[in-house]
């Protein structure tokens, strides 16, 4: 196994009296999709924000990048390392077209200050082609795109910075079947290009479809780290809910198959 591109150990984060994360361990390898699972309020978004530099972690934990310890104190630190984050509210400008959104804040220029639209559009076509994404026209305002297309534009945009780790907070939450498939395809393509992908999702089917590994958080602690291919649905649910006695396991015991609580627990 290769060294993880990103590794966190013993990370804690307190908000006033709330300990949102305590002693969390987490790592992503290059070319791997890690699902981050947990019930509402488990601390998934907080962990992503710690990694993205939006909420720096409490002192005590260690974050390493390619095996070297680093500090992530601000979003710019994370960006410089090569971590891209796509939050659930996509932050696109509805009135700008696709090219405008892709290069927002990062425009290609020829004269001082004048936009090089041709170059930007060419790069946009190249980028979307490399992701095998096809969009009717790059010059329509993104307001007219479907939810899945908007998600894809948001992801593509983060790739312009050539990140090595991409984190997606519930990218398929609001999408229909076909659009979800489109986004999952894109996630697989990112993995195939050697990027580490962190995927937060409440949708077990999505997780099983694309993730290689699932890390479960429960009440701010690591409650399990499962290789997806060798773990049953029930085991993961048990780790998420924190009990062997939950609706899902009760149901499977009745139907004959057994389910153990957590497996491979750290």
């Amino acid at each position: 196994m290769s060294t993880p591109v990103l590794e966190l150990s013993g990370i804690s984060k307190t908000f006033g009296a709330v300990k949102a994360l305590s002693e969390v361990d987490f790592h992503v390898d290059p070319g791997e999709v890690v699902a981050l699972l947990g019930d509402n309020g488990a601390g998934k978004s907080t962990l992503v924000k710690v990694i993205a530099g939006a909420h720096p972690a409490d002192s005590g934990g260690v974050i390493s990048w390619d095996g070297d310890p680093v500090t992530i104190g601000a979003p710019s630190d994370a960006q410089r390392l090569g971590i891209a984050t796509i939050y659930q509210d996509l932050a696109l400008c509805d009135n700008l077209d696709i090219v405008g959104n892709l290069f927002l804040g990062n425009e290609r220029l020829h004269f001082p200050g004048t936009l090089d639209e041709v170059e930007m559009e060419r790069r946009a076509v190249e980028l979307l082609d490399s992701l095998s994404v096809s969009i009717p026209s790059l010059r329509v305002p993104v307001a007219s795109l479907s939810g899945g297309q908007r998600q894809i534009i948001a992801i593509a945009r983060s790739l312009l910075g050539q990140p090595r780790v991409v984190m997606l907070d519930e990218p398929t939450a609001a999408l229909g079947v076909a659009q979800t498939a489109q986004v999952l395809d894109l996630i697989e393509r990112l993995r195939d290009q050697g990027l580490g992908v962190v995927l937060i999702s409440h949708n077990m089917a999505d997780v099983r479809a694309v993730a290689d590994r699932a890390v479960v958080l429960r009440l701010g602690r690591t409650a399990g780290d499962f290789p997806i291919a060798e773990t049953s649905y029930e085991e993961i649910v048990a780790a998420i809910t924190g009990a062997a006695d939950n609706p899902v396991t009760r149901r499977s015991t009745r139907t004959g198959s057994s389910a153990t609580a957590t497996k491979d627990k750290e």
Partner: peptide, 24 residues
Amino acid sequence: RKTRYGRMVYAVGGSSEAARRAGI
């Protein structure tokens, strides 16, 4: 239409939050 400044004006008008996150 042609300058980065103009693009930023439209971006802030479309979504000031998106513009801020894009580093504008």
